[in-house]
Design a protein around this nucleic acid. Structure first.
Lengths: 190, 190
DNA sequence: CTTATTTCTTAACCTATATTAAGAAATCGA
DNA sequence: TCGATTTCTTAATATAGGTTAAGAAATAAG
């Protein structure tokens, strides 16, 4: 199963046999059944997870008890609380599985050590992080400039897979509206 | 003036004399008077800019002609259209100076070549990008979960310098409200 | 210093989205 | 398979924040 990660890395920078072995040693496979957590708010994020199967999400719970989804992570995505993972401070995010899932976990320690042994992996994570930042910027601009309906349409275009596998209320939470309002938007003609 | 960049890099990973020389060669100093552009929507982002003095911003203009600010970049920050810079596709952002400014510019070409010659700089940019992503995530969650007034208060706490140097309308644009509404919030007691 | 331009404030009115509630549909768990 | 739980829909009502407009204050430019 680790092969899935290896091919993902190879899509960005080619690893030789020795390097592949090192990666295999540092990463640990883990089953995450639906609704189980990989990380809870209040803890320091020790791990970043690469999704082999299924789908996880990260989210906060606000003062009124409402969930707000920061990220969905389907197959071949990484998920973590970047802030807590990088700064090693207590996190405000929860990360759990929306579907029965299988992931690889990598600790921050291992990641930093791996960067010294295999500089190519520093490149791999630099590229991933650049892409994530570019997407995040796009999302920010969408909030600033587009009404909910258009944000929903863009979500459908961007993540067609998720539309069919996730409950609507999760999508509403991601695009920043209530499930009731999303239902209304979907009911509208045109 | 390049020394300012060198000390910023040294805050993350120490460069030796030779490496410092390489950086000095690859970067170009540029004056950017207030209201002048370093980048315009529609073009491919060739450069990333490090601010030596002053303050720049990146923003889109929506269909109705309203500006929405993605980022402020005061001294010691980098600014670019990450998406266009990384993917080398036409950009939707403008970048201009809010105050008379002085910057260093680095082309994407140079940056990629520099990564091969000085892997430490790949680390430098990885760390910067991780931090930027963590902040961007925070901002996203703030939009999802907090009312405008609280977002404004957090902005004041986070960027006290900008509060005093920038017109309020720019700040309103950054936190995602109209200048009129910000004015109203500021007028409220408590 | 004086005028022109930009920014800020206030207020009346408007709209996108939230809230509450309740029943219907779908999915889950035993 | 069947009851329990979760999700979805609809509709009435409420509100945060937007729009428009016009004058005041501040800042820039000549």
């Amino acid at each position: 199963m680790v092969d899935k990660l290896i091919s993902h890395i190879n899509g960005i920078c080619l690893l030789n046999g020795e390097e592949i072995e090192i990666v295999k040693e540092l990463v640990r496979e883990k089953d995450v059944p639906r609704k189980h957590f990989v990380h809870r708010a209040g803890e320091i994020a020790q791990y970043s997870a690469f999704i082999l199967e299924g789908c996880l999400r990260s989210y906060t719970i606000d003062q009124n008890g409402f969930e707000h989804i920061l990220q969905f992570a389907p197959e071949n995505w990484w998920i973590s609380d970047m802030y807590s993972f990088v700064k090693q401070t207590p996190s405000e995010l929860n990360i759990d599985a929306l579907l029965d899932s299988k992931v690889l976990i990598l600790s921050r320690d291992c990641q930093l050590r791996i960067f010294d042994r295999i500089p190519k992996l520093e490149r791999y994570f630099r590229v991933l992080t650049e892409n994530a930042l570019a997407s995040s910027n796009h999302r920010t601009l969408d909030y600033l400039s587009l009404p909910a309906k258009v944000r929903y349409q863009k979500f459908c275009d961007l993540y067609p897979t998720l539309i069919n596998t996730l409950p609507q209320k999760q999508i509403a939470s991601y695009i920043g509206i209530t499930p009731e309002f999303l239902s209304k938007l979907r009911g509208e003609r045109s």
